[in-house]
Simulated scan of single mutants.
Amino acid sequence: MLKKQILVFLLMMIFTVKSSYSQCAMCKAVVENGDVSMAEGVNNGITYLMVFPYLLIGILFYVIYRYKKKAKN
């Protein structure tokens, strides 16, 4: 049963790659038509936007850890 689920998951990942690859046409157009500083700006913006979800998840796990540690005492 687990092997079948893994196979279905892998097949779904393979067949959805093209649609997920082509989601950001505007970013691609800016990078292709712009200069190096524009490409660096887009990369910095993506990095900036990517930091906040990881921070929120880290804070959530820290709060859960602290709550469970207090519950043990």
Rank of each mutant, 00 (worst) to 15 (best):
residue 53 P to F: 03
residue 45 G to M: 10
residue 3 K to Y: 01
residue 59 I to L: 15
residue 44 N to D: 04
residue 30 V to C: 04
residue 57 I to C: 12
residue 7 L to H: 04
residue 63 V to D: 03
residue 19 S to E: 11
residue 7 L to F: 09
residue 49 L to E: 02
residue 49 L to T: 02
residue 69 K to G: 00
residue 65 Y to S: 11
residue 44 N to G: 04
residue 50 M to S: 14
residue 2 L to M: 03
residue 58 G to S: 05
residue 45 G to A: 09
residue 46 I to Y: 04
residue 42 V to S: 12
residue 6 I to D: 02
residue 35 D to L: 03
residue 44 N to F: 07
residue 65 Y to W: 05
residue 56 L to R: 04
residue 73 N to G: 15
residue 12 M to Y: 05
residue 42 V to Q: 09
residue 55 L to K: 05
residue 54 Y to R: 02
residue 3 K to L: 07
residue 61 F to R: 07
residue 24 C to Y: 10
residue 8 V to I: 10
residue 16 T to H: 03
residue 26 M to V: 15
residue 56 L to D: 10
residue 56 L to G: 11
residue 72 K to G: 12
residue 16 T to N: 05
residue 11 L to H: 04
residue 41 G to S: 11
residue 61 F to V: 08
residue 34 G to W: 03
residue 15 F to L: 14
residue 64 I to N: 03
residue 8 V to D: 08
residue 35 D to N: 11
residue 52 F to L: 15
residue 42 V to F: 14
residue 21 Y to R: 15
residue 18 K to I: 14
residue 26 M to L: 13
residue 10 L to F: 07
residue 73 N to L: 15
residue 24 C to A: 11
residue 70 K to N: 12
residue 57 I to T: 12
residue 25 A to V: 09
residue 9 F to M: 10
residue 60 L to M: 13
residue 65 Y to T: 08
residue 46 I to A: 06
residue 47 T to Q: 04
residue 68 K to W: 06
residue 41 G to P: 05
residue 64 I to K: 15
residue 70 K to M: 12
residue 40 E to G: 02
residue 22 S to C: 11
residue 10 L to H: 01
residue 29 A to N: 04
residue 19 S to I: 12
residue 19 S to M: 06
residue 56 L to Q: 10
residue 11 L to G: 05
residue 20 S to T: 13
residue 19 S to P: 00
residue 38 M to P: 00
residue 48 Y to S: 12
residue 34 G to I: 01
residue 16 T to M: 08
residue 22 S to I: 08
residue 52 F to E: 14
residue 69 K to Q: 14
residue 5 Q to P: 00
residue 50 M to Y: 11
residue 53 P to N: 10
residue 17 V to C: 06
residue 22 S to P: 00
residue 18 K to T: 12
residue 53 P to V: 02
residue 2 L to P: 01
residue 44 N to I: 04
residue 21 Y to M: 15
residue 21 Y to T: 13
residue 60 L to Y: 14
residue 7 L to K: 09
residue 31 V to C: 04
residue 36 V to T: 08
residue 1 M to F: 09
residue 64 I to C: 14
residue 4 K to Q: 09
residue 34 G to D: 03
